[in-house]
Design a protein around this nucleic acid. Structure first.
Length: 695
DNA sequence: CCAGTCCCG
């Protein structure tokens, strides 16, 4: 441990950047005094009060008049407030109560996650003393509750993007509020850019940008950027940073710590004696590590005598809801809760009672290589902003401490902010989305953050090779427009749309649904060997995609029960989701009049399926090399095979494979292919004459 | 030995 520490300040300590900014106007300077006080909200401390009293106690309530004024006066209003300030629940109610729905138009609020849309709508319906789905409703992928009476509609951002393709002017809405804009996901970035564009033709549309951080200036600049039309030059910023932050002391390790578990328990933090109260949140990069760490903690607990008991909670997305909720349980007296989490605890889940955070400094992130377009799940250093966000989790109920398992010198080398997703991901889906909405020049579109030119070219190359766009880059009539509508990434959509031709749409439908879930098998550490054996039973020599088909078929044949899934270590939660997705895709196939044909029992059964997969995944093919690795055709990358792949059970590795998932340096979800098929199915993608291996 | 980030339609 070094002496270097950084002290997080309370909002009220920092007069320059926080308390003076209440409402800024750009045009006429008619400031309204916000009168910020330094009240700090903690984890719903008002739960004993009436709902109306609780509402009035929220920090945002003091800004009600400012919000309403700004909405009258400005077309875009940026609201900055911490989680817990009440902006997501209160602002829509302020607007509804002051007549913003009187012309039967809706206030729409977008959320990045489905659960948030549902829980916010439920809460607001409670506050309005109405049944969910009447005045207040929600819409998410697999359903929703709304009616003719609905005035406030919570939804996922994906739903609103989709709605824009059928109603480009969003005429149903008087106000659209984009919540969690600071997360800078592809969807929120696109929505903001599209809404800005829409404001030019819909003068009456109000946009609220809701963000938890102080980069309001960036959003404001974006909405005001003069591109020859200054009708959009009216934006107000309301900053209400009061939320729930207490000071957090930061401690750095002297040198980077290689082993999370040992370091955290022995050298960096003395969990048991030094600190009087507060639970501990530990950020690791992967689920596997989370489980391993929990086992370590168990060992420690056994060794402990005469000190705090530790209570061992893993938290990651793969857990069932019930298992996730264990992280919320309060601990018995004298017991300290230790939550070991993936980055799920950065955004999706907030655990109350945390006073200590241990930050490993890394995160797993999906990143596309702009050269070959291959998306890989990589372990990368976090940004300074992400490190501060993690630290902030220690200061929600009382002053806290954060231990960073790396030196301060390393912290200073980190990127200031996380690169927005649109600058890291594959752009083919983004291009399709914009094309659907009639953005003709996708390259010159006014992005919130401009993607790299090379990635853009790569996105177009793929869409062209798939047949979704023509030589001019315009959507092709049949394939292109259908691909835009399907709730699948472009390569997956291509596979589905060509499945009838290959005579195996029934099987492909199942495989694609299974490919949308994260893990097919659970391999618990305590029953690893047994789980391996049952997994082997399902495995097919030709590869993982046929294995997925096997699992789903067996799941259906055995009554789709959780009991069966547990017995065979199959991911029940995932399979139910696969079933939902499958049902939704069937509806699209009916709409497109694509017949459900099965190849079961026919000659060349698996060949049909693998050819069909290749019709969409021809960019992801690799050849087995003498070095025991798989190499892409132009030798741009080489990979190991993920040890959980079905083909690892084979005595001899297949010479050619297609892959549909990449983690770090390993390809996962492989199917064996014949290289002859590549030229047949993607005649224009590779320069066949020049590639010696294909001759 | 290699290693189940997180979400959206």
């Amino acid at each position: 441990m070094t002496d270097s520490r950084i002290v997080f300040k309370k909002p009220s300590d920092d007069i320059d950047t926080v308390t003076t900014t209440v409402l800024e106007e750009r045009e006429d300077g008619g400031n309204i005094d916000g009168g910020i006080t330094s009240s700090i909200a903690v984890f719903n401390p008002y739960y004993t009060m009436s709902i109306q009293k609780q509402r009035s106690m929220l920090p945002i309530s003091k800004y009600k008049m400012q919000v309403l004024y700004a909405m009258e006066r400005f077309r875009t209003v940026i609201i900055v407030g911490e989680t817990g300030s009440g902006k997501s629940t209160q602002v829509p109610q302020f607007l509804m109560e002051s007549g913003w729905c009187s012309d039967r138009r809706l206030i729409g609020i977008t959320q990045p996650r489905r659960v948030a849309a549902v829980t916010l709508a439920t809460r607001v319906a409670d506050e309005q003393l109405c049944r969910l789905g009447t005045k207040v409703g929600f819409v998410v992928r697999f359903g929703g509750v709304t009616s003719d009476e609905t005035m406030i509609q919570y939804m996922t951002d994906g739903i609103l993007l989709r709605e824009m393709s059928s109603d480009p002017l969003l005429l149903r809405y008087s106000v659209v509020m984009v919540d969690e804009a600071h997360e800078r996901s592809v969807n929120t970035d696109l929505l903001l850019a599209l809404l800005r564009r829409l404001q030019k033709v819909r003068q009456d549309l109000r946009v609220i940008v809701s963000s938890a951080t102080l980069d309001a200036a960036y959003f404001r600049q974006f909405f005001e950027l003069n591109d020859g039309d200054d009708a959009t030059k009216d934006t107000a910023v309301i900053v209400s940073v009061e939320g729930s932050t207490y000071p957090v002391d930061i401690f750095y390790a002297e040198k980077p710590v290689p082993s999370y578990a040992k370091a955290a328990l022995t050298t960096t933090i003395d969990i048991h004696t030094k600190h009087p109260s507060g639970d501990i949140l530990i950020f690791l990069t992967g689920q596997d590590e989370v489980e391993a760490f929990c086992i370590d903690l168990k060992e420690q607990t056994r060794k402990l005598k005469n000190c705090d008991k530790l209570w061992i909670v893993p938290l990651y997305g793969g857990l069932s809801q019930k298992e996730q909720l264990r992280a919320f349980d309060s601990t018995p007296f004298g017991t300290r809760k230790v939550v070991v989490a993936t980055n799920i605890a950065e955004t999706s889940v907030t655990i109350p009672g945390i006073s200590y955070v241990i930050d490993c400094g890394f995160v797993k992130m999906r990143i596309a290589d702009p050269n070959n377009g291959i998306e890989t799940l990589m372990i990368v250093p976090i940004s300074q902003a992400a490190a501060d966000q993690r630290a902030g989790r220690a200061g929600r109920v009382r002053p806290g401490k954060c231990y960073r398992l790396y030196p301060e010198t390393e912290f200073k080398k980190l990127l200031f902010a996380t690169v927005p997703e649109i600058q890291r991901c594959h752009l083919a889906p983004v291009i399709l989305q914009l094309k659907t909405l009639g953005v003709s020049n996708v390259v010159r579109f006014h992005y919130l953050a401009r993607p790299r030119v090379k990635s853009m070219a790569n996105g177009f190359d793929l869409l062209h090779a798939l047949g979704a766009v023509d030589d001019e880059g315009a959507l092709t009539n049949n394939l292109g427009t259908k691909m835009c509508t399907l709730p699948l990434p472009p390569m997956h959509a291509k596979v589905l749309l060509s499945s009838e031709k290959f005579g195996c749409s029934e099987e492909i439908l199942t495989i694609l649904a299974m490919m949308q879930i994260q893990e097919v098998f659970n391999l618990p550490r305590n029953a690893k060997h047994e789980a391996e054996l049952t997994k082997r039973e399902f495995s097919v020599a030709e590869g993982d995609h046929l294995t997925m088909l096997n699992v789903y078929t067996a799941f259906c044949a055995n009554g789709k029960t959780s009991k069966w899934c547990n017995q065979f270590h199959v991911n029940y939660k995932g399979l139910l989701r696969a079933q939902n997705i499958r049902d939704q895709l069937i509806a699209y196939l009916k709409k497109y009049k694509i017949k459900l044909i099965s190849c079961k029992g026919l000659i060349g059964e698996t060949e049909k399926i693998r050819r069909c997969l290749l019709s969409g995944f021809f960019t992801n093919v690799a050849r087995y090399g003498h070095d025991g690795c798989y190499h892409t055709i132009y030798e741009t990358s080489k990979f190991n095979v993920y040890k959980g792949s079905s083909i690892m059970y084979r005595s001899e590795m297949p010479k050619w494979v297609l892959f549909t998932d990449v983690l770090q340096n390993s390809i996962r979800d492989l199917s064996e292919i014949d290289p002859e098929w590549i030229q047949e199915l993607a005649p224009n993608f590779y320069e066949y004459g020049s590639v010696r291996i294909l001759i």
